[in-house]
Amino acid sequence: MISYLKLKKFNFLLILICLFVLMNRTDFIKDFSRVLKSDEPSRIVDRYGFCGGESIGYLRYLKEKFNFKSNPKIINFIHTPPTNWSIYDTNSINLKSDFEILINYPGEEIVIELPLNDKHFFLLKKSNYSLGNSSKEIIKFYIEDKTIKNLSIEFFSFDNFKIKKKISNLNIKRSNNNLFIIKNSENKLGFGKKNILIKITSEKGIYKNDDLKLIFQNKYQLNTLEILNNYQNCYLIKK
C-alpha cells in the first residue's frame, strides 16, 4: 500500500504518529466505544442528565409519553442554558399549552444566598435567576449567629447617576423559628426590579459575615397544583 501511494516509509510513520496524536487529543477510542455502545438518546441523557441540571432526559421522556400538541412552558429552578430546544415543536407555536414542566423543584421555599458586596453591603441583583419564580410578599432573613436578637435592615438602590439611595429601613426581632421575617406587600422594596443593596446592623454592630440567606415563598406550591407526572424533583403539572 505504501508503494501504491508513492509514500516514503519515514513519512508513512510520521503520518501514523500525527494521526495517533490527533486520536489521543479527542480521546477517540473512548468516544468511539461510547458511540458504538449507546444510542443517541442515551448519550443525550448521559450528557444533560435525566432529572437534574438541564433534565433533557425527563423532557424527552414526557414528550414521548404525553405527545404534547403544543409547547409546554418549562420552568427550571436552577440557572442553566435554555432547554426548550429539546422538545420544541415549531408547528404548534401559536397553540396555548395546558401543561407546565417544573425542573429542579426546590420545595415550597426558595433560598438565595447573598454575597457580601463590599465591606457593609449585601447585593441582591435584579437579574438573580431565582427571583423569577419567587413570591416577594414575605421575605425571611437567615443568619448563622444565633445570639443576635434584633436587626436593623436598610435597603438601598442606585439612582440614574449610580449613587446609593435609601429605599427603606426596618427594625425586626428574631421570630420563634430563628428567622427575621419582613412583609413586602406588593413588592414595595422592588426585588427583581432593581439591584438592591442590603445593610444589616445588629446589637453587635454592622453584620459582615458572608452567610446571609434570603428565603422566599415559591410561586409554585405543589399542594395547589394538579401533578400529572413526577420523577424526583421534576414535575409535569396541568395549569
Binding site: 490527533l22 479527542t26 477517540f28 468516544d31 468511539f32 458511540v35 443517541e40 448519550r43 435554555p82
Partner: peptide, 14 residues
C-alpha cells in the same frame, strides 16, 4: 475522528 468526537460530546453552546 472529529465526527466521533461530536457524536459523543453532543453538548450544544448556549
Amino acid at each position: 475522528i472529529f465526527s466521533i468526537d461530536i457524536a459523543n460530546e453532543l453538548n450544544l453552546g448556549w
